[in-house]
Design a protein around this nucleic acid. Structure first.
Lengths: 214, 214
DNA sequence: GGATGTGAATGCATTCACAGCA
DNA sequence: TGCTGTGAATGCATTCACATCC
């Protein structure tokens, strides 16, 4: 039941895989049952060759003369990404961003289930936020164990991020989505994905400043 | 008063520029006045050569034998990114994510000033959220004009994103930070930066699933 | 004919390694 | 000696173009 993997798949290809899946799910809601690399590429601003090459890193999913079967490919990509089963996720930080994560509707349908929320602030601990009761950091280890949590969302102030990141790793978490504007210093084996909101705006600032280069 | 630009600067270099700035601002809070490419690289997990090459795309900021003067380089990088002046930013979408953006403390100090919040939902219009009163979409054009808004944050449901993106562009917005999980179809000249939260988790899922490759 | 999968060719980005300056 | 800036060399990623299959 293994998806065959040939070469080391380029990182950019893996990132695009998520976008392919997103698009495939959208197409699935229409009556279309099949799609070509050209069409899939166009909807995402990529070349047909790019799409084919990306997918071919992971297996032979296409049907010459036909294209890709939407349902089939979606299932394959989900399997590759590991989202054909549900991941339990925990959240640390019940501030602004944390609350948005608790309420975000886009996670469940994608295979991510938020199971618990933690905060270091005693004033917040015990408070109810939607379906969640904010837990103290002291309970972190137990929750990771009992819910087999592998992924966490880190939405704490910058000065706390490194320390909390370490706590998560020690508890057994293997991947962290980090919203704090700091580089986390963690073992190589831990997957870290950082989103710095101010950095996103800075990139826009740069691009908007430049004369539109023809 | 132009920063000299030599070659077309690689995109990845521009992305790292923001990280350099973040690090430089942190160092500025210490007593350190100067930093080498090696040190700056280490704090971000990059090679010294990478740092030097990136910076050299934009000018000669270093001092051989010494390194880079922290304050000086920070100012230069800010100028390159265009954040040495303040940008007025508007937000569309007063849902979960939108509220987090309104409360996010990381924007102001980085040169981004949130000036107004819009929502298509009549029930939300007129409500007060912190210092903001949610405005109706009909006022969007006026606000963009009167506040010379060039950048916007888009935090609306996926099905509305394309349409609202178009509205923003028509109103005169030049750059969009998009949180909706859809590809925006807008003119080439418009800068779009998309952050899909579910995609971020999917990438972690993939990495955590793979046997740690040595 | 219509579409995939894939070597070969091209184009970018990173790393090397060193000349040159403080 | 310490460190930058930069051509040259390497390594990745994308694009081309075509043999192959429905």
């Amino acid at each position: 039941m293994e998806t065959p993997r040939h070469d080391p798949a380029p990182n950019p290809a893996v990132r695009r895989l998520s976008l392919y899946l997103r698009e495939l799910e959208a197409i699935r809601r229409t009556d279309r049952r099949t799609i070509s690399s050209k069409q899939l590429g166009e909807s995402l601003g990529l070349s047909d060759a790019q799409v084919r090459k990306d997918l071919a890193y992971f297996g032979q999913f296409g049907h010459p003369g036909i294209g890709y079967k939407v349902e089939e490919l979606a299932a394959q990509v989900k399997h590759i990404l590991g989202t054909d089963k549900t991941w339990n996720v925990l959240l640390v930080g019940a501030g602004n961003l944390g609350r948005a994560m608790m309420g975000y509707r886009g996670f469940e349908s994608k295979g991510f289930h938020l199971v618990a929320v933690f905060d270091a602030d005693d004033a917040k601990v015990g408070q109810k936020q939607g379906p969640f009761v904010i837990q103290p950091m002291s309970e972190l280890n137990d929750t990771v164990q009992s819910h087999h949590v592998k992924l966490a969302i880190l939405a704490v102030p910058p000065d706390d991020a490194q320390q909390v990141g370490k706590l998560l790793v020690d508890a057994g978490v293997r991947g962290i989505l980090n919203f704090a504007p700091v580089k986390l210093n963690l073992p190589e084996s831990i997957a870290v994905n950082s989103v710095d909101l101010a950095v996103q705006l800075e990139q826009l600032s740069f691009q908007v400043n430049i004369p539109p280069q023809k």
